[in-house]
Amino acid sequence: MTLNIKSYKEQLATWPKQGHHIMAQYDDEKIIVYQSYRPDIGNFAAQNQYFGGDFSLNRMTWIKPNFLWMMYRNGWATKVGQEVCLAIHLKRDAFERYLKQAVYSSYQSDLYPTREAWQEQVQNSAIRLQWDPDHDPYGAKLERRAIQIGIRGKEVEKYAKDDILEIEDITPFVKEQYKHVLYKALDHLMIPEEHPLVFKNEDLNKQLRLQ
Protein backbone atom coordinates (compact mmCIF):
# COMPACT_ATOMS: atom_id res chain seq x y z
CA MET A 1 0.00 0.00 0.00
CA THR A 2 1.41 3.38 -1.01
CA LEU A 3 -0.75 5.65 1.15
CA ASN A 4 0.86 7.71 3.89
CA ILE A 5 -0.37 6.34 7.21
CA LYS A 6 -0.46 8.09 10.57
CA SER A 7 -1.93 7.58 14.02
CA TYR A 8 -5.60 8.53 14.25
CA LYS A 9 -5.11 10.07 17.68
CA GLU A 10 -2.23 12.26 16.47
CA GLN A 11 -4.27 13.51 13.54
CA LEU A 12 -7.36 14.09 15.65
CA ALA A 13 -5.45 16.62 17.75
CA THR A 14 -4.82 18.84 14.71
CA TRP A 15 -8.00 18.42 12.67
CA PRO A 16 -10.70 21.14 12.59
CA LYS A 17 -13.64 20.29 14.84
CA GLN A 18 -16.39 21.97 12.81
CA GLY A 19 -17.14 23.65 9.49
CA HIS A 20 -16.97 22.45 5.89
CA HIS A 21 -13.63 20.82 5.12
CA ILE A 22 -12.31 18.56 2.38
CA MET A 23 -10.22 16.25 4.56
CA ALA A 24 -7.94 14.33 2.22
CA GLN A 25 -4.52 12.99 1.36
CA TYR A 26 -3.26 14.98 -1.61
CA ASP A 27 -0.36 16.70 -3.33
CA ASP A 28 -0.03 18.91 -6.42
CA GLU A 29 -0.57 15.98 -8.78
CA LYS A 30 -3.26 13.85 -7.18
CA ILE A 31 -5.82 13.37 -4.43
CA ILE A 32 -6.87 10.07 -2.84
CA VAL A 33 -10.58 9.28 -2.98
CA TYR A 34 -12.34 6.15 -1.75
CA GLN A 35 -15.04 3.86 -3.06
CA SER A 36 -16.35 0.46 -2.01
CA TYR A 37 -17.84 -2.16 -4.29
CA ARG A 38 -18.91 -5.76 -4.42
CA PRO A 39 -16.01 -8.10 -5.28
CA ASP A 40 -16.64 -8.48 -9.01
CA ILE A 41 -16.46 -4.71 -9.60
CA GLY A 42 -13.79 -3.90 -6.99
CA ASN A 43 -11.48 -6.75 -7.96
CA PHE A 44 -11.76 -5.93 -11.66
CA ALA A 45 -10.83 -2.30 -11.00
CA ALA A 46 -7.82 -3.18 -8.84
CA GLN A 47 -6.55 -5.80 -11.28
CA ASN A 48 -7.07 -3.79 -14.46
CA GLN A 49 -6.47 -0.27 -13.10
CA TYR A 50 -9.68 1.13 -14.52
CA PHE A 51 -13.41 0.70 -13.95
CA GLY A 52 -14.97 -1.76 -16.36
CA GLY A 53 -16.62 -5.16 -16.38
CA ASP A 54 -19.85 -4.91 -14.36
CA PHE A 55 -19.22 -1.25 -13.46
CA SER A 56 -22.09 0.79 -14.90
CA LEU A 57 -21.32 3.94 -16.86
CA ASN A 58 -25.04 4.75 -16.84
CA ARG A 59 -25.31 5.30 -13.09
CA MET A 60 -23.98 8.03 -10.82
CA THR A 61 -20.91 6.95 -8.86
CA TRP A 62 -19.93 8.69 -5.60
CA ILE A 63 -16.36 9.39 -4.47
CA LYS A 64 -15.27 10.36 -0.97
CA PRO A 65 -11.85 11.86 -0.12
CA ASN A 66 -12.33 11.31 3.63
CA PHE A 67 -11.24 7.84 4.81
CA LEU A 68 -13.34 7.71 7.98
CA TRP A 69 -16.46 8.86 6.14
CA MET A 70 -15.92 5.92 3.78
CA MET A 71 -15.52 3.60 6.77
CA TYR A 72 -18.83 4.87 8.15
CA ARG A 73 -20.48 4.26 4.78
CA ASN A 74 -19.11 0.77 4.16
CA GLY A 75 -18.96 -0.43 7.79
CA TRP A 76 -15.20 -0.94 7.53
CA ALA A 77 -15.76 -3.12 4.44
CA THR A 78 -18.32 -5.34 6.20
CA LYS A 79 -21.52 -4.23 4.42
CA VAL A 80 -22.92 -6.40 1.66
CA GLY A 81 -21.99 -4.99 -1.74
CA GLN A 82 -19.17 -2.91 -0.27
CA GLU A 83 -16.70 -5.62 0.69
CA VAL A 84 -13.85 -4.33 -1.49
CA CYS A 85 -12.51 -0.93 -0.46
CA LEU A 86 -10.51 0.98 -3.06
CA ALA A 87 -8.13 3.91 -2.67
CA ILE A 88 -8.19 5.75 -5.97
CA HIS A 89 -5.29 8.01 -6.89
CA LEU A 90 -7.24 10.64 -8.82
CA LYS A 91 -5.65 13.39 -10.89
CA ARG A 92 -5.83 16.62 -8.92
CA ASP A 93 -6.96 18.63 -11.95
CA ALA A 94 -9.78 16.14 -12.58
CA PHE A 95 -10.98 16.51 -8.99
CA GLU A 96 -11.02 20.28 -9.35
CA ARG A 97 -12.78 19.98 -12.70
CA TYR A 98 -15.55 18.02 -11.03
CA LEU A 99 -15.97 20.60 -8.28
CA LYS A 100 -16.09 23.59 -10.62
CA GLN A 101 -19.17 22.18 -12.35
CA ALA A 102 -20.80 20.61 -9.30
CA VAL A 103 -24.39 21.35 -8.32
CA TYR A 104 -25.53 20.89 -4.72
CA SER A 105 -27.84 17.96 -4.03
CA SER A 106 -30.12 20.26 -2.04
CA TYR A 107 -31.30 23.79 -2.79
CA GLN A 108 -28.99 26.56 -1.54
CA SER A 109 -30.78 29.91 -1.62
CA ASP A 110 -27.56 31.94 -1.61
CA LEU A 111 -26.11 30.12 -4.63
CA TYR A 112 -29.14 29.63 -6.91
CA PRO A 113 -31.56 32.44 -7.82
CA THR A 114 -34.64 30.21 -7.57
CA ARG A 115 -35.48 26.64 -6.66
CA GLU A 116 -36.51 26.08 -10.29
CA ALA A 117 -33.12 27.31 -11.52
CA TRP A 118 -31.39 24.92 -9.13
CA GLN A 119 -33.56 22.00 -10.27
CA GLU A 120 -32.67 22.74 -13.90
CA GLN A 121 -28.97 22.76 -13.04
CA VAL A 122 -29.34 19.47 -11.18
CA GLN A 123 -30.91 17.89 -14.26
CA ASN A 124 -28.20 19.18 -16.60
CA SER A 125 -25.09 18.74 -14.46
CA ALA A 126 -22.80 15.72 -14.58
CA ILE A 127 -21.53 16.39 -11.04
CA ARG A 128 -23.45 16.37 -7.76
CA LEU A 129 -22.08 17.83 -4.53
CA GLN A 130 -23.15 16.89 -1.03
CA TRP A 131 -21.95 17.84 2.46
CA ASP A 132 -22.75 15.34 5.21
CA PRO A 133 -21.81 15.07 8.88
CA ASP A 134 -18.34 13.62 9.26
CA HIS A 135 -17.97 10.57 11.53
CA ASP A 136 -15.52 9.21 14.05
CA PRO A 137 -14.14 5.64 13.83
CA TYR A 138 -17.19 4.29 15.70
CA GLY A 139 -19.59 5.96 13.28
CA ALA A 140 -20.76 8.77 15.57
CA LYS A 141 -21.67 12.06 13.89
CA LEU A 142 -19.32 15.04 14.21
CA GLU A 143 -19.94 18.76 13.80
CA ARG A 144 -17.44 18.91 10.94
CA ARG A 145 -18.93 18.35 7.49
CA ALA A 146 -17.47 15.90 4.96
CA ILE A 147 -17.81 16.14 1.18
CA GLN A 148 -18.88 13.50 -1.31
CA ILE A 149 -19.10 13.97 -5.05
CA GLY A 150 -21.43 12.21 -7.48
CA ILE A 151 -20.25 11.71 -11.07
CA ARG A 152 -22.37 10.73 -14.06
CA GLY A 153 -22.72 11.05 -17.82
CA LYS A 154 -19.64 11.95 -19.85
CA GLU A 155 -17.71 12.70 -16.66
CA VAL A 156 -18.14 9.16 -15.31
CA GLU A 157 -16.69 7.84 -18.58
CA LYS A 158 -13.61 10.05 -18.06
CA TYR A 159 -13.44 9.06 -14.41
CA ALA A 160 -13.52 5.34 -15.15
CA LYS A 161 -10.39 5.36 -17.31
CA ASP A 162 -8.79 8.75 -18.03
CA ASP A 163 -8.80 10.56 -14.67
CA ILE A 164 -7.29 7.82 -12.49
CA LEU A 165 -3.55 7.37 -11.93
CA GLU A 166 -3.76 4.24 -9.77
CA ILE A 167 -6.31 2.02 -8.02
CA GLU A 168 -5.32 0.25 -4.79
CA ASP A 169 -7.30 -2.44 -3.02
CA ILE A 170 -6.87 -1.46 0.64
CA THR A 171 -9.36 -3.99 2.02
CA PRO A 172 -6.74 -5.95 4.04
CA PHE A 173 -5.56 -2.71 5.69
CA VAL A 174 -9.15 -1.70 6.47
CA LYS A 175 -9.92 -5.05 8.09
CA GLU A 176 -6.70 -4.96 10.11
CA GLN A 177 -7.44 -1.49 11.47
CA TYR A 178 -11.09 -2.34 12.15
CA LYS A 179 -9.91 -4.70 14.89
CA HIS A 180 -8.70 -1.68 16.88
CA VAL A 181 -12.13 -0.11 16.52
CA LEU A 182 -13.89 -3.28 17.65
CA TYR A 183 -11.64 -3.55 20.72
CA LYS A 184 -11.94 0.20 21.41
CA ALA A 185 -8.18 0.57 21.11
CA LEU A 186 -8.02 3.83 19.16
CA ASP A 187 -4.50 4.52 20.49
CA HIS A 188 -3.39 1.84 18.03
CA LEU A 189 -5.60 2.89 15.11
CA MET A 190 -3.67 3.95 12.00
CA ILE A 191 -5.41 5.66 9.08
CA PRO A 192 -4.36 7.56 5.94
CA GLU A 193 -2.86 10.94 6.78
CA GLU A 194 -5.28 13.74 5.86
CA HIS A 195 -5.27 17.53 5.88
CA PRO A 196 -7.88 20.14 4.92
CA LEU A 197 -7.73 21.00 1.22
CA VAL A 198 -8.33 24.53 -0.02
CA PHE A 199 -7.87 25.87 -3.53
CA LYS A 200 -6.07 28.85 -5.02
CA ASN A 201 -9.38 29.70 -6.68
CA GLU A 202 -11.16 31.77 -4.03
CA ASP A 203 -14.45 31.68 -5.93
CA LEU A 204 -14.34 27.88 -5.79
CA ASN A 205 -13.58 27.95 -2.07
CA LYS A 206 -16.56 30.23 -1.54
CA GLN A 207 -18.87 28.08 -3.67
CA LEU A 208 -17.84 25.03 -1.63
CA ARG A 209 -18.15 26.89 1.70
CA LEU A 210 -14.62 25.84 2.63
CA GLN A 211 -13.39 27.24 5.94
Score class of each variant (00 low, 15 high):
P133L: 01
K100M: 09
E193A: 14
D110L: 11
G75L: 01
V122C: 06
G42L: 06
A185L: 02
A117C: 04
M60E: 15
M70Y: 04
Q121D: 12
T171H: 03
V122K: 12
W15G: 00
P16A: 08
K161Y: 15
A146M: 02
V33G: 05
I167L: 10
K161C: 09
T14H: 08
E10M: 09
L204Y: 12
G75W: 03
F95G: 01
Q25V: 08
K6H: 11
A94I: 03
Q49M: 09
M70I: 05
I63Y: 07
S109Y: 02
A126C: 07
N58D: 10
R115T: 10
F51L: 13
L3G: 02
Y98P: 00
T171M: 02
K154V: 10
V174C: 04
I170N: 03
K100F: 03
R73D: 07
D162C: 04
F173T: 04
I31S: 05
K6F: 08
A146L: 01
Q47G: 12
D132I: 01
K158T: 15
V156R: 13
R92A: 14
E168V: 05
V84T: 14
D169T: 10
L3Y: 14
I191T: 06
R92H: 13
W69A: 02
K206A: 15
E10D: 15
E168S: 06
S106E: 14
L86Y: 07
V156A: 09
N74W: 02
V122Y: 01
D187Y: 02
F55V: 11
A140R: 01
Y72A: 10
A13P: 00
V33S: 04
D134C: 01
Y72H: 13
Y112M: 09
Q207S: 11
V198F: 08
M1H: 07
D40V: 14
V33P: 00
G150M: 04
V181A: 00
I147G: 07
L12E: 14
S109V: 03
E10W: 05
D28Y: 05
W131Q: 03
D27Y: 07
V198T: 15
K100C: 05
R97M: 14
M23R: 11
A46I: 01
L208A: 07
K206M: 11
T61H: 11
A185N: 15
A45C: 09
Y183K: 14
Q11T: 07
W69V: 01
I63C: 04
L182N: 08
E116D: 14
L90R: 03
N124Q: 14
N205K: 02
R115S: 12
E168I: 04
G52C: 11
V174I: 13
T2G: 14
P196G: 09
H89T: 13
H195M: 08
E120Q: 13
W131A: 02
Y37W: 15
A146V: 02
D163F: 15
A140P: 00
Q211D: 13
S36Y: 09
H135T: 03
G75F: 04
A13V: 02
H195Q: 12
V103R: 00
E194W: 03
D134L: 00
